[in-house]
Simulated assay, not measured.
Amino acid sequence: MSALKIAAGLLLLPAILFAASAPSGSQDALELQKTRERFVRERGAKTFYPADRFDLSGLPAYQPEEQVSGKLRIWGNNYLADSGLAQVWEEEFRKVQPGIQIEWNLKSAATALGALWAGAADIGITGRGILWSERLAFQREYDYDVTEIVSSTGSYNVAGWSNALGIFVHKDNPISKLTFAQLDGIFGAAREGGWGPDFEWHREVARGPEKNIRTWGQLGLTGEWKDKPINPYGLNLRYEQSLRIANPILMGSDKWNERIKLFANFTDANGKLITAAQQVMEHLDEDRYGIGYGGVMNLTPRTKALAIAEKDGGPYVPLTLETVHDRSYPLIGETFFYVNRKPGTPVDPKVREFIRYILSRQGQQAVARDGKYLPLTASALQDQRRKLD
């Protein structure tokens, strides 16, 4: 073999190795959207929990405070349409409020806030919290903040339906629980500050590299684990799931562990959607020293979920259907209604009555029957109702 051929082969070797490790399929954005639509429709037709699993007797029954009429325009969260929950809500609400017509535009949560601040929607619905850019746009348009109301708890284990996020490791790993501070040390890095829930920059949450946790020994493991590096895995940082880690755990910082391996959804060679969370779990299944986040529905026989505590010393809460429903697990998902309400003024009566219906026993029973999102607890529901006053 000539020297020229050998040199050419060496130049091609990195590309060959990359191709061997890269996903077999397509990440074309439009093709991926079509694959995702099929994926969501399949899950939308299923019920994952029996309707009687949750005791809703403590929730208040819906009693109209006034009869309202007119058109109610609702934009956003496509999962309400994909599951049929939106239609059920409309049919049941109109039995007691027959003067209302609802115009749904449920293509994506990405449309919700834009439609609201542009005046095209009366209610914007998302399956994730408001983004920094969305809130900024609303504030600049109106010079006040948007009103946010939690409408249900996210699912326990249904991909797409705002499922709770678990922290996972290989089953051989002796670790069983971690705190938010420890997770910050693992997934995060030195930072100069972070964005708070108030969407303001907070310098007081800055930290240095001395708080980085990069070996299992730093978490108290001994023996063979003591000097082993922690291999972190995660989802594309543009996905909302990564924001649900960064905001509470990394204190709103965008500074992540420099060694984190990130994954994105793709369509495989058979036209099946392969999610980023699936890929994280597949790597943890093979990596005894790995740690990652994602959904419990992707758990394998060789991986396990850790109990999580928001504060040092606990309580440490395991990831279960019960702890997600009662909202004691610290990394639950939520769905939100957003309303344009000028401070000091009442909520539009038809908007108020519809949200009061959602935040009632009947509205949450519809959530429970749908079997994906989880109904609110009585205390959480009352907290949200007070936002309408």
Rank of each mutant, 00 (worst) to 15 (best):
I175C: 12
I74D: 04
Y49Q: 01
D370V: 01
A109Q: 06
A110K: 12
S83D: 05
R53Q: 12
Q27P: 01
E37L: 14
Q101A: 12
G76W: 02
L273Y: 11
G124Y: 00
Q279F: 09
V296S: 04
G208V: 13
S176N: 14
A115H: 04
G344E: 11
M1Q: 07
Q33I: 15
G119P: 04
S152T: 10
I74Y: 01
S328Y: 12
H325S: 12
K272I: 13
A378N: 04
L113D: 01
Q279Y: 03
G25H: 10
L178T: 00
F54N: 07
G166C: 05
R191F: 02
D143T: 02
I274F: 03
A206C: 10
W201Y: 15
P50C: 06
V280F: 07
K228C: 10
T179D: 08
R369T: 14
W256G: 05
A86Q: 01
G124V: 05
G252W: 06
D122Y: 06
L106Y: 04
T47C: 11
R352M: 09
W89L: 04
S26F: 07
P330S: 02
D184S: 10
Y316K: 09
G292H: 00
K304R: 14
L106S: 05
R203A: 15
I213W: 07
E92M: 06
E322T: 08
V347L: 03
T147S: 05
F54I: 15
S2L: 09
S176Q: 12
T320F: 09
D389Y: 05
Y79G: 02
I332K: 05
L30H: 13
F18A: 13
V347M: 01
N78I: 11
A190D: 07
L376Y: 01
E66Y: 08
P229E: 11
I260A: 14
G84F: 07
L381T: 10
Y233L: 12
L237M: 08
L321W: 02
G124I: 13
L13V: 13
A159S: 10
E37K: 04
V146E: 00
Q97K: 01
A181Q: 14
P23A: 08
N77K: 00
W117H: 13
D287H: 04
I74V: 15
M1H: 05
F263M: 05
R352L: 13
D55F: 09
F39C: 06
Q218S: 06
P318W: 10
K171L: 14
L359M: 08
Q67P: 09
L262H: 02
L243C: 01
P349F: 15
K261Y: 02
I6N: 08
N105D: 07
G344W: 09
F336W: 12
I167N: 00
P343E: 02
Q382C: 00
V68R: 00
F337R: 04
G208W: 14
P23S: 11
G217K: 03
S21A: 14
A181E: 13
K261R: 15
P232Q: 03
Y357W: 11
K95I: 03
P349N: 10
K46W: 10
V317H: 02
I100R: 03
G129K: 08
T126A: 11
G44N: 01
G25S: 00
E334H: 07
G25C: 05
E353P: 13
Y293S: 07
H202G: 03
K350M: 12
G129C: 04
Q362K: 07
R214V: 15
L4D: 11
G154A: 06
